[in-house]
Simulated assay, not measured.
Amino acid sequence: MIKAIVLATALALTTAGAVTAQDAGRSNFETGREAYIRSNFEAGQQAYILTDYANALRFFRMAADQGHAEARFYMGLIYSEGRGVPQDYAEAARWYRMAADQGNADAQGNLGLMYANGRGVPQSDAEAVRWYRMAADQGNDSAQFNLGVRYGSGQGVQQDYAEAVRWYRMAADQGNAPAQVNLGNIYRTGQGVPQDYAEAVRWYRMAADQGNDSAQVNLGTMYALGNGVPQSYVEAYRWLTLSAAQGNAQAVRNIDYVRSQMTPAQIAEGERLAAAWRPRF
């Protein structure tokens, strides 16, 4: 009885899911091909990290020629930045487009940049926006930021500050520092939102904590003026010092005024706070 049950079960399973030798061979071939492509891509990534761009290009090309979307994105990046090859924007755009057409969000965003700047393709604000939107809709924070810029400036789209805020916020919520700065600027000036210095300070601080020099100079200035925070020349000095150390010209100018309003003890405290600061990511 047990044997009959086992035999019947095995027969039922075999009948329901019969696999031919041809099917098995095709499956094994596809698995092996995918592994080969993946191994070339991973070798390219490793070489790229090690700045061995000649080998990165070699391995990425092997994967890209087999249709690997991310390898095609890296091919575009290598040609765009001229890493190990002569810089070639047209070739970069070609590879970006192949990856972008496969739905790669990074490639879509970078192709948008190529159209925005007219590099390797005819300059087109409309095309830039089209590719930014594709990437932004997939959650790409850089594309969301760039789309926010477009809505804020009215390039390639109808100017719409509320829409700019919406895209900036999506990018800012993912930690995109430039978007956080621009969102802070919008709340400080009241474009598309009610003016709110405290909210501006909140966004500036997020970006400043990541080391963004524009956010640091803006945060320092808010402390100097007492806008959205209790007025403090010591805190102003700290943030302006950090921004100036990165070469921000506005910070250099602002810090001279702030220093003139401070006692030697306050300056020393501001310098101590600046020296103790560490970025947060």
Rank of each mutant, 00 (worst) to 15 (best):
A236D: 05
G192R: 09
Q191L: 09
M170L: 15
R133M: 01
V201R: 06
F145M: 03
Y233N: 15
G175C: 04
L57W: 02
R133C: 03
A54M: 02
A224W: 07
A47E: 09
G152E: 14
A275M: 07
T9N: 00
D209R: 03
Q45R: 13
F60A: 03
S232W: 10
L240C: 08
P122D: 11
V6W: 05
L242R: 10
V181F: 14
E91T: 14
Y115N: 13
A12E: 02
V85A: 08
Q191G: 01
M170E: 04
E269Y: 02
W239H: 02
A164D: 08
M75Y: 05
T51F: 00
D65S: 10
Y79Q: 01
Y115L: 09
A177N: 13
G270E: 13
I5T: 14
G152W: 09
A63K: 08
A71S: 15
G118D: 03
G67M: 03
A274Y: 13
E70L: 08
A105G: 07
G67T: 04
E127I: 02
T189M: 11
A24C: 01
N117T: 05
A135E: 08
F73W: 05
V85Y: 07
Q155R: 15
M114P: 00
Q159K: 15
R166S: 14
S27N: 05
D125L: 00
A116L: 14
G270I: 11
R83I: 00
Q246H: 06
